[in-house]
Write a protein that binds this DNA or RNA. Structure first.
Lengths: 257, 257
DNA sequence: GTAGAAGTTGACGTAACGTCAAGGTCAAGC
DNA sequence: GCTTGACCTTGACGTTACGTCAACTTCTAC
């Protein structure tokens, strides 16, 4: 015969308050089979005991760490190792934090630009281009490995990443077109600064492989030779593609030779 | 008569691909009144023009920054200033990042403890205590201002924060009980290290106001005098409350006098 | 006996689409 | 003219963890 020192059974509101949650959450856990009442009265009332309270507190601890109810159920039911689960969760948290950091940086940049009066949202439309349409040509010119490296990089991006890449491309094209229309020398400082960004952008698209002088200059020539590229750049003004080719050639000779 | 240089109209799939999204998203934006097709065929087909594409690209830009569709609609329809909206969003992003940082820290601590073999999830239950039940007493002993400061702090916490506070309290109580049962001197190094945590914890609960020597020692005496407190600490073993009182008194004399 | 507190089971709402399902429409080849 | 496949449409459910009614029953205290 044991003596009950403390309360041995609580109603749903009582246990909820004791643990710092709500009765709705308790019913939800019941429905999800995460935490069943220790006893259900003939009137349908749920009652919880000490053991329930301990389990509830564990649930809430893991919830406060950010784990989902499925993961919590696996851990508490011994189907998953808690260390493994927490490590996986930690990776997820870090990835989320990195994503937030990128968004914070983007928003900050956008705000800075707005303060300076720069119009941040383009008035012109641009279209995404499907890199797979160049597959055979890329393989022929730079080899299968090059295509696959670039393809892997592209597919590793999420949707937002792909769109950001598209916007960067558009931004570079617009800058080139402006420089061209301002009568800048393609080998001059203004144009070459754009080409610097352009080169970094291509490097990223190549999966962090830096194009050689011939490759970069050859790519520039393609902008003029291949009508699909030419159209894409000349839509900002006829002659832009040729201007870009010249700038890229100059950049290759000056920096990549 | 104008000459259409580029395509002047796209089908839903075409514009989706050009902008880097999906037809489902386009239909969603249509339903949400965020982006209506420029034309709808008699067969119900949606068609989009240049203007639509520009608007779509703006939508996706803001989406990639993390804004919700409601906020985007307000910005694009001129109902809200974009700088104001972005600044508000930036604040939100930073708050989210801080929350993630706290979770990452907690998970890391938990993992470290697990690696060391410490059981991280208590076997015993503890109950949250409702600070408002002490309202009159607190006001009588330490003044109305003290109560309100502490109350403001408590209500500023989110649910997870409140639970974390409860867990800290429990952890301190358990540590005290262990020290007491190990025969430690309440004024000794082991107990005083716990009291140090205890003091910081109380300070936090008081809204970052550091208790004076009398206040801290007086609080310790209350642990013994008030049965609600006594019970709360002696449930870990009779005599724990008195041990804590002695430790707090020693701490007050050594560090707060 | 009756009010008020507390309990119950639905069921909808949340954010932004993904993912079928069932069924028209259109262009191209035979 | 017919078939096939690609593309289009409108529902409608699923996702995450509950919050928030609504309608109704039960317990408790006066």
């Amino acid at each position: 015969m044991t003596v009950a020192r403390a309360k041995s059974e609580w109603s749903i509101h009582q246990i909820a308050k004791a643990a710092g949650t709500t009765s709705r959450a308790l019913r939800h856990y019941d429905e999800r089979e995460l935490l069943k009442p220790s006893r259900v009265g003939s009137n349908g009332y749920r009652y919880y005991d000490q053991e329930s309270l301990v389990r509830l507190q564990r649930i809430l601890l893991l919830r406060d760490l950010g784990l989902g109810l499925d993961a919590i159920a696996e851990v508490l039911d011994g189907e998953a190792d808690s260390r493994t689960a927490l490590r996986a969760h930690l990776d997820w948290l870090k990835a989320e934090q990195a994503r937030l950091a990128r968004q914070i940086a983007s928003v900050s940049r956008t705000l800075d630009a707005l303060e300076k009066g720069e119009p941040i949202m383009a008035n012109e439309a641009f279209d995404g281009f499907d890199h797979t349409q160049y597959k055979d040509e890329v393989i022929e010119r730079w080899g299968k490995e090059s295509y696959e490296r670039s393809d892997r990089w592209w597919r590793s991006l999420d949707d937002a990443g792909k769109r950001e890449f598209m916007r960067t491309q558009e931004s570079i094209a617009v800058d080139y077109a402006r420089a061209y229309q301002a009568g800048e020398d393609p080998a001059g400082e203004v144009a070459q600064a754009i080409t610097q960004r352009h080169y970094e952008w291509i490097t990223t698209a190549w999966g962090d492989k830096r194009p050689s002088a011939e490759q970069f200059a050859g790519l520039g020539q393609m902008y003029v030779d291949d009508p699909r590229f030419t159209q894409n750049y000349d839509k900002h003004g006829d002659g832009t593609a040729a201007f870009i080719r010249d700038a890229m050639k100059a950049y290759a000779e000056a920096n990549l030779a």
